[in-house]
Structure formats: C-alpha cells, structure tokens
Amino acid sequence: MLALALLAGCAPASVQEPEDGKLHIVATVFPAYDFARAAAGDLADVELLLPPGTESHSYEPTPADILKVQSCDLFLYLGGDSDQWVETILEAAEPTGRTLALIDCVETLEEEHVEGMQEEVGHHHDEDEDDHDHDHLGTVTEIDEHVWTAPANAAAITRQFGEVLAELDSANGERYRANAEKYAEEIDTLDGEFHAFFDSLPDRTMVFGDRFPLRYFAEEFDLRYYAAFPGCSTQTEPSAATIAFLTDKVREEGISTVWYIEFSNHLVADAIAEAAGAETAMFHTCHNVSPNELAGGETYVTLMRGNLERLRAHLNER
C-alpha cells in the first residue's frame, strides 16, 4: 500500500506515446489478454499482467505492475472477487488510459451454491429454496465473474473489445473491428459444436471434485452439475459430508468421470473417483495458462476445443 501511495504521488502528468505509435493494452487474466490480442492484431501491444500459472485470487501486484496499469492506453480486468486488488490500484494509481471490466461487457449471473457443495464460511444458504429451474438447489451469493466460460459471452466480449480499440485508435477502427469479428466467428463456430454435442446427450450431469467456476458454461448448455466448492472459493478441503455426497452421486447415477480444473492438485477428484470406481479428467476454465501453454500459442479457442474433445471422450462413455 505504501508503494501504491508513493507511485500515485509521483505519477507523470501525461503518458508518453510509444515510439512505434501502437496502443499499449494491459490485461490481468488470460481471457481478456487473448480476446484483446485477437482484436488488436499487429496494431497494438498486448501484455498479460499476471504471470502464467498465477492464482489471481491471491495475487499481489508489484510496483512495476502498478506503473503499467497507470500508463497503458487500455486496462482490462475481471471486476470480480478474484481481482479485488485491482480496485486498490485503480483508486491509488489513477490510470491515464481507459479501463474496462469483463463483467461490464455482458449480462452477469450470481455465484451459485448447489446441493452437496461445501458451505462457504460466512455464507448462509436455505437448502429448501430452489435457485432456478435446472434442478440446482440452494441460494446464490455474489456475482460470478467467470463470464468468458460461456463461448457466446466470449464472442460478445471480443466484439466489444474491437469497438473499444476502434474508439481509441479511430484511424485503424475498421481493422480492429474486422480482427475482432474474425475471432468472434471462430468462437461462434466452436459454440455451435458445443451445442451440437450436448444436444446429443441423454443426460447432461457433471460432477466436479473441485471449484466450479463454470456457471456461465453450465447455464448456456443447460448442464446439471455438482461440485465440491463454488467458483470463487478459497477452500481446498471439503468436509466428509461433501465428499460422501459427491461419491454417492457418482455411484448412483453411473457417472464415469469426475472433473477437476487446471492448476488443481485434483486430490479431491481423485478420492471421489477412486471410491466410486470412476475416472478423472481436466476441464480448462481458461482463467490462466501455464508458461508452456502461453509459449506454445494456446488461445481461448484451442483450450476450449480441448475441453470439447475431452467431453466427447468421457461423457459419451455414459
């Protein structure tokens, strides 16, 4: 906080234009980075603020990060619980460029607590109240920030990024819009493939022995899900009751696969699967990527297509 105050007090009066004339875009998380990179093409420099593999919930920005946010032309962030540290930067550093939160780009949903899920400390849920008509039980808590997990949202965000870049650099506006539309159409195609796959399934139930930051994905494809924790949970050890509930659910419904998310140690998923005689598989939420994934050129589309292939391999076994 002292560093923030010092940096804010020493902020330059104006931001110098980059020597190459390109816009400088800083994104906190991979989805925003990927969508902006696609919309910008070679017209702007796009930088991922969080190092690959970093957990955004516990991230602590460095003085260099603060200066980047303060001086960039466009700063992109989630706007939810996992990057509350961003609000501190924005208040102290007073960025000279434009800022945009992903949760402001599309309609949001509230985080959901489903039947059997580990109760979050400080939250109370009425188990007798249906949340909505997908057979998800319980009540909702705060806004779920993982808006990009629904491909339809990802395409909409990409198109909006194209419009924002066109406003910032009107001379190249049509190129930004064209770049964004091209990538959004790739996402639209993938979205159609997901819909076709799920429409072919007699049952759309998934069990996650992990956090579940896929509320928007579940909503778009009408999935019924059970999980150990809600999407923004910081807990890693579910109660015996939660593990027993998920294990019984896998056994009773003949579910072949227990899922976990990227960068998880998947110990909970492994324990449930072993007890129920099931397999495990990873669903990549695209929240962040590993150094190898970033260096290898992975994108939202390639990562989500990988998810589709794993879904085809495991859900079709039912």
Rank of each mutant, 00 (worst) to 15 (best):
P95E: 08
P95W: 09
P95A: 11
T96E: 14
G97V: 02
G97A: 03
R98D: 00
R98K: 12
T99M: 06
L100W: 03
L100I: 10
L102I: 02
L102S: 13
L102F: 01
I103C: 06
C105L: 15
V106R: 10
V106Q: 09
E107I: 04
T108F: 06
V114E: 01
V114A: 14
V114Y: 08
V114D: 12
E115S: 11
E115R: 12
E115G: 01
G116W: 08
E119K: 14
E120M: 11
E120L: 15
E120S: 13
V121L: 07
V121A: 12
G122A: 14
G122W: 14
H123L: 15
H123T: 12
H124R: 11
H124W: 13
H124T: 13
H125L: 02
D126A: 05
E127Q: 09
D128F: 11
E129S: 05
D130C: 00
H132K: 02
D135M: 03
H136I: 14
H136A: 13
G138V: 09
G138Y: 01
G138T: 06
G138M: 05
T139V: 11
T139K: 08
T141R: 03
T141V: 11
E142R: 01
I143C: 00
I143Y: 00
I143F: 00
D144I: 00
D144Q: 04
E145C: 02
H146E: 04
H146V: 04
T149G: 07
T149D: 02
A150P: 15
P151M: 10
A152C: 04
A154D: 03
A154F: 08
A155H: 04
A156Y: 03
A156C: 01
A156K: 13
T158I: 01
R159L: 15
Q160M: 09
F161I: 15
F161V: 15
F161N: 02
F161Y: 13
G162E: 02
G162Q: 04
E163C: 00
V164D: 04
V164F: 01
L165T: 00
A166V: 02
E167N: 14
L168A: 07
S170T: 09
N172W: 06
N172I: 01
E174S: 15
R177D: 00
A178L: 15
A178Q: 12
N179Q: 05
A180R: 11
A180I: 13
E181T: 14
E181I: 04
E181S: 09
K182H: 12
Y183P: 07
E185N: 06
E185V: 06
D188S: 14
G192P: 02
F198C: 12
S200T: 08
S200I: 01
L201V: 11
L201N: 03
R204D: 11
T205Y: 02
T205I: 09
V207G: 06
F208L: 14
D210R: 07
D210M: 14
R211Y: 08
F212R: 13
F212L: 10
F212A: 07
P213H: 12
P213M: 06
P213G: 09
L214Y: 08
L214A: 15
R215Y: 09
Y216W: 14
A218K: 01
A218Y: 02
A218F: 05
E219V: 08
E220K: 12
F221C: 11
L223T: 08
Y225K: 01
Y226I: 05
Y226M: 04
A228T: 06
F229C: 11
P230C: 04
